[in-house]
Amino acid sequence: MAVGVPLFGTLEVAGPEEFGLDELTAELLAARGDARQVVADEHAWFFGAELQRRSLLPAAHAHGAPTTFREWLARQ
């Protein structure tokens, strides 16, 4: 967790895997024992924007972390 304003502006961090937001959410809920089903709506808005399948991928300058989502989740 980072607290405060980034020293040099925005810091974008990403892991080595690519997930759809629906896939990531479903896996997180399942890991927490939540049996709700995640249903994606391709026309749902995300913070005021309609996203494409690859809209939330990190930019080329993002800091790539070697930890996978499942590794991170296992530590929680």
Rank of each mutant, 00 (worst) to 15 (best):
Leu24Arg: 01
Ala62Gly: 01
Phe8Met: 11
Ala40Trp: 05
Val13Phe: 12
Pro66Tyr: 04
Asp34Cys: 05
Asp41Pro: 03
Leu24Ser: 02
Phe69Arg: 07
Gly64His: 14
Leu24Val: 02
Leu56Gly: 04
Leu11His: 05
Phe19Val: 02
Trp72Gly: 13
Ala40Asn: 05
Gly4Met: 06
Thr68Met: 00
Gly64Gln: 15
Thr25Lys: 10
Glu18Ile: 09
Glu12Ile: 06
Asp41Gln: 07
Ala31Lys: 01
Thr25Ala: 14
Arg53Leu: 10
Leu28Gln: 05
Glu71Val: 01
Ala40Ser: 07
Ala2Ile: 14
Gly64Lys: 15
Gly9Met: 01
Val39Thr: 11
Phe47Thr: 15
Thr68Ala: 00
Gly64Leu: 15
Asp34Pro: 00
Ala74Asp: 09
Ala49Met: 13
Ala31Ser: 09
Arg36Val: 09
Thr68Tyr: 00
Ala44Phe: 04
His63Pro: 00
Ala26Gly: 05
Arg54Ser: 09
Asp34Phe: 02
Leu51Ala: 09
Arg36Lys: 07
Ala2Tyr: 08
Asp34Gly: 01
Arg53Trp: 04
Leu73Thr: 03
Ala14Trp: 07
Val3Met: 13
Asp41Tyr: 06
Glu12Ser: 08
Phe19His: 04
Arg70Glu: 07
Ser55Ile: 10
Glu42Thr: 10
Pro66Asp: 12
Leu56Ala: 13
Val38Cys: 00
Leu51Glu: 10
Leu56Pro: 04
Leu28Ser: 12
Phe46Pro: 01
Thr25Arg: 06
Glu50Cys: 09
Val3Lys: 10
Ala49Tyr: 12
Phe46His: 09
Glu23Asn: 00
His43Tyr: 11
Leu29Pro: 00
Ala31Gly: 07
Ala60Leu: 07
Leu11Trp: 02
Val3Thr: 12
Asp22Asn: 13
Pro58Cys: 13
Thr10Trp: 09
Ala60Pro: 11
Thr10Phe: 06
His63Glu: 14
Phe46Thr: 11
Arg75Gln: 15
Val39Gln: 06
Phe47Lys: 14
His63Ser: 08
Ala74Ser: 08
Glu27Gln: 14
Gly15Pro: 02
Glu27Lys: 12
